[in-house]
Design a protein around this nucleic acid. Structure first.
Length: 553
DNA sequence: GCCGTTTTCGGCCCGACTGTTTTCAGTCG
């Protein structure tokens, strides 16, 4: 079964092989097409059926043809041919840090080394000593990199919810001890991508050396990879790579813009600058030698005639063209969230203290909570919130925080309509990975519902997600978006918004302060382009009082 | 191989860092 992901993988494979063959621009062209395919919300075959493959950024005549071939046969002959020319182990060597296409090619052509294993053997046998360009240090560096590569697949991307607390700890450490003034985590972390390959930290400081010293002595840091005048790269104990850059305040905005990316976004921004006789780099926007902007991102975009673009949208999906026409429509923000539609108390809620939940809800400025009063606990056992606990909660909440009772129902196996009068709304929880939603008529038995607990991180999950989004559309419910394998990510959020659905965002109100659920869910929604009007819990009124129209669809 | 209200040909981001070098090549982001 052809898939967008597989097509992207093939293109990346082609790019690697072309790299080794010494091609200059083709590899990047194939990689660009691969990135586009991955960010497509729609299935490739559907785009092909409409004859619109060429509308995908980076897809031209030649790549369109290869995509058609792939959809028809599952294969691309060009790729197979390249693989005959270049031994697969040579391309694999590109995955070794510090070893690029030029070096891999030299190993292959000049020394007959075709795999990482053969490279290690050659190093051990001393075959590289005396070879031009390979001094003692270089040999040691390559050896260490090859061994690291063999030990495990380094550089696996981390889910953002795993990276989030790490980033927070690093930022806090730097802020407290390094005398850093402005600190920001840039890169794909700031764009709110589902996974991050590394972290890019950016600080302003009058004393870069001190910042680097403090940074490399943080408990999370295992080793320093490199240190220059403006940049330090370290490896954390968990293997994550982190870059720290120190810039002067006058360039902070430009550096932040530059290192937030994405790559494709920056290419577009820079070529636009060129058209206008300007030049953009990480220090600022320049006309000749004159720096026009650099202190803030707003300033940088403005100097190019653009409105500021939220980081989550910087993915080269037309956002630059929009920003050239005027301010972008506002995205949902933390302060826009007025309630949480789906809050769980711990299963032993009878004993649990309810005050932290109420305090946390107030701190977040929430006006209402939809508390799951009946459903299944983490182990799938039926669970009812004791009425005593409900009472304690109501008392603690007071008049400003409204409590609503919510029922969480397994679909399609759970009950249908009984109990409507007791509960204010229903959370639909598809049974694990069920790709088979019930008919929409069943779903309409609820006055309002939120589809939650739909994951999408594997092919089976993706199929289920597609089906449940269709179901939600037919029923007129919102779908929950957020981090973790049990929620829809930003790509699915975009897909849901495109079909006219609204989103439900968890605020993380029931979790300890600083937990990543709320902020990440918000980033995913923003990444999908959601405005406040498209988020159900950005409505100041709980869905029961003002939102029955939502069920009408 | 892609792309185009200056181009259907001739561009394609560019600066930091390292190592091996005596002025630069390779890699990375």
């Amino acid at each position: 079964m052809p898939s967008n992901t597989e097509a992207a993988e093939i293109f990346r494979g082609i790019a690697d092989l072309l790299d080794v063959m010494g091609e200059r621009f083709k590899p990047e062209a194939y990689r660009r097409a691969a990135r586009s395919l991955e960010s497509l919300t729609e299935d490739l075959s559907a785009v092909a059926a409409r004859g619109e493959l060429r509308s995908i950024p980076g897809v031209g005549e030649a790549i369109e043809e290869k995509l058609r071939e792939y959809l028809a046969s599952g294969k691309i002959a060009y790729y197979d041919r390249l693989r005959l020319e270049v031994p697969p182990g040579v391309a694999e060597m590109l995955a070794i840090p510090g070893l690029g296409p030029k070096t891999a090619r030299r190993f292959w052509v000049e020394l007959g080394i075709e795999t990482p294993d053969e490279l290690l053997a050659a190093l051990t046998a001393g075959r590289l000593s005396g070879v031009k360009g390979f001094g003692e240090k270089k040999v040691a560096q390559i050896r260490s990199a090859v061994e690291g590569h063999r030990a495990g697949p380094a550089g696996a991307r981390l889910p953002i919810e795993v990276a989030y607390p790490i980033a927070q700890a690093l930022v806090q450490g730097l802020r407290e001890r390094a005398g850093a003034e402005q600190i920001e985590v840039a890169g794909s972390f700031r764009r709110g991508r589902e996974t991050v390959g590394d972290l890019d930290l950016l600080v302003t400081s009058v004393d870069p050396t001190r910042a680097f010293d403090v940074f490399s002595s943080l408990p999370e840091v295992r080793e320093v990879r490199l240190r220059g005048a403006t940049k330090e790269t370290v490896l954390l104990t968990n293997g994550l790579q982190v870059d720290l850059r120190v810039v002067e305040p006058a360039a902070f905005g430009a550096a932040l813009q530059y290192f937030t990316g994405s790559k494709d976004h920056n290419v577009i921004v820079r070529s636009l600058a060129k058209e206008r006789g300007l030049r953009v780099n990480e220090y600022g926007v320049y006309r000749g030698d004159e720096r026009l902007a650099g202190r803030t991102e707003e300033e940088v975009y403005a100097a190019l005639g653009l409105a500021w673009i939220p980081p989550e949208l910087r993915e080269a999906r037309g956002e630059v063209d929009l920003a050239a026409q005027g301010p972008l429509p506002p995205l949902v923000s933390e302060s826009a969230l007025r309630g949480d539609l789906h809050v769980h108390l711990a299963p032993d809620a009878e004993a649990a203290s309810v005050e932290p939940l109420v305090t946390s809800a107030r701190a977040r400025g929430l006006a209402y909570l939809g508390l799951v009063a009946e459903g299944l606990d983490d182990h799938g056992r039926p669970f009812t919130l004791p009425s005593k606990t409900q009472e304690r909660l109501r008392k603690a909440a007071g008049p400003k925080l409204r409590l609503h009772l919510v029922r969480e129902v397994d679909v399609p196996s759970g009950p249908t309509s009984a109990g409507r009068e007791v509960f204010d709304w229903t959370v639909l929880r598809p049974t694990s990975r069920a790709p088979n939603p019930p008919p929409a008529s069943v779903g309409r038995a609820w006055s309002l519902a939120v589809v939650a607990h739909v994951g999408s991180r594997d092919p089976a999950g993706a199929e289920a997600a597609r089906a449940w989004i269709q179901f939600a559309r037919a029923v007129g419910t919102a779908v929950e978006v957020g981090p973790g394998p049990e929620r829809l990510d930003s790509t699915w959020a975009r897909s849901a918004l495109e079909t006219g659905l609204s989103l439900a965002l968890p605020t993380g109100v029931e979790e300890p302060t600083g937990s990543p659920t709320g902020p990440i869910a918000l980033r995913f929604a923003r990444r999908a382009g959601a405005g406040p009007g498209q988020v159900r819990n950005a409505d100041p009124h709980a869905p029961v009082s003002g939102g029955r129209k939502a069920a009408a669809d």
